[in-house]
Design a binder for these strands. Structure first.
Length: 417
RNA sequence: GUGGGUGUAGUCAAGUGGUUAAGACAACGGGUUGUGGCUCCGUCAUUCGUGGGUUCGAAUCCCAUCAUCCACCCCA
């Protein structure tokens, strides 16, 4: 028990950390190129933020939050990234600055779910948000950034699906139309879909049970019932994506599970990482700020699962460059050589080189063995003979060539390559 | 919350009731304290996730429990 991480959590071990560093750097990089700036918010928030923001009826709020009481306040580990960013935006009145605001983040999130492939209780997301404009330029830019990032990570099998889930007005109208259509078939629906009928009938369209897929044929489609304004916006979005040259398919089955979404909804889906194939998902949320008691601030953004991203990269055979070994490994023989070695190592490290020495008092053979296993590029050998002449031997670990050089020339030789 | 699979060393594993639990890789040490990658030798599970039961005898059969993986639901 003591030596077991809690269910649904994963340690990132030294052998894999470079992969995360790689995608984290690449993500920060592309965000900066697209004009986004980083924002960091706390890991926990007032529980009410998510109840209001994500929505009281959602699965996330009803059964998946890590919530506790402290000093008479109810606090919750963030289950998603958008509401906290909106909260910070309103709290610090960032709407008073130049608009739009374009922000990105790299955060851990927490949901109490049953773990499976691509789903953890403590997981990590990249996210971006654009606040302050309801123009579909913003939606297209968000999608373009997600698309280009996924491509830059070497992923080829991910497909973009877009949809419009309308605004609160047209969505309610549509739900009624859909319920009317399904009412006569209600008894034949599967158990989960009977629940969905009241709570979120749009999900029934996406049910995997073959009987239900049959029942749902010919059902009215949301897209046919969105209002004029939403239709214009959706056409606008498609036009912008076409202009970017980004391919997509319109999928009326894309239904986001958080209440705050309006109009644009999209997902980037992989078929090769198991059932949880959504690598990146997002959309527009024009009423979230107001819902939280702030001024009306339109917004659009996405969340991108880092664990799922890495799974997809692996499935695509992407090779992330492995970190190199030390520029130089200092092999020492004898007490005096050790002292000289330590001093040399410190100097070289201060010069910005990656230098290591044996910490286990190994013999020469095993020092070399260690240098070899850790992929050191050069070995610097210091023994009695070298010390007498104020020299060291520098050995190229790949070719095995070894040359004697004076102490004062070490730095320039190492920096040559 | 529901359903299914799996648990033998750091990793991959053989072993399906009979006394000392194969093997490979890794790790560590050594082959006369001055040289790695190859090679040779050595070390590395009183114990088979844990607890109970059946039996003369259990890693092997039964029960429980825990962990893990996968799927549903839902989402990143």
């Amino acid at each position: 028990m003591l030596t077991n991480a809690p269910k649904g959590t994963k340690d990132l071990l030294p052998a894999d950390a470079y992969k995360w560093q790689y995608v984290e750097k690449a993500f920060a990089d592309i965000c900066e190129r697209y004009g986004f700036k980083e924002i960091r918010t706390p890991v926990f928030e007032h529980t009410e933020l998510f109840q209001r923001g994500v929505g009281d009826t959602t699965d996330i709020v009803q059964k998946e939050m890590y919530t506790w009481e402290q000093a008479k306040r109810s606090l919750t580990l963030r289950p998603e990234g958008t509401s906290p960013v909106v909260r910070a935006f309103v709290e610090h009145k960032l709407y008073a600055e130049v608009q739009p605001s374009k922000m990105y983040y790299n955060i851990p999130c927490f949901r109490y779910e049953k773990p499976q492939s691509g789903r953890l209780r403590a997981f990590h997301q990249f996210g971006i948000e654009i606040f302050g404009t309801d123009n579909q330029m913003a939606d297209a830019e968000v999608i373009a950034l997600g698309h280009d990032f996924i491509r830059e990570m070497g992923i080829k099998d991910v497909e973009l699906r877009i949809n419009s889930i309308g605004c609160p007005k047209c969505r309610e109208t549509y739900r009624e139309i859909l319920r009317d259509f399904l009412a006569p078939k209600y008894d034949a629906l599967c158990g989960t879909c009977k629940d969905r009928y009241e709570r979120n009938p749009m999900r029934i369209l996406d049910c995997k049970a073959p009987e239900d897929q049959e029942l749902v044929k010919g059902a009215p489609v949301m897209l046919d019932y969105i209002c004029e304004e939403c239709q214009v916006a959706f056409d606008d979005l498609k036009e912008n994506l076409d202009a970017y040259g980004i391919e997509y398919t319109v999928d009326p089955g894309i239904v986001r599970g958080l209440d705050y979404y309006t109009k644009t909804a999209f997902e980037f889906i992989s078929r090769n990482i198991g059932a949880q194939g959504t690598v990146c998902g997002g959309g527009r949320y024009d009423h979230l700020s107001e819902e939280l008691g702030g001024p009306p601030i339109p917004g659009v953004g996405f969340g991108l699962g880092i664990e799922r991203l890495l799974l997809t990269m692996e499935a695509n055979g992407v090779r992330i460059p492995e970190p190199q070994g030390a520029d130089a490994f200092i092999v020492v023989m004898g007490a005096e050589a050790k002292k000289v070695g330590l001093r040399l190592m410190r100097t070289l490290r201060q010069e910005g080189l990656k230098v290591e020495m044996d910490d286990m008092a190994r013999n020469v053979k095993n020092q070399f063995k260690y240098a070899d296993r850790t992929k050191a590029i050069k070995a610097i050998v210091i023994g009695e003979q070298e010390l007498e002449n104020n020299q060291v031997a520098i050995r190229d670990m790949e070719s095995g060539e070894q040359v004697l050089v004076g102490m004062e020339d070490i730095l320039s030789i190492l920096k040559e390559k």
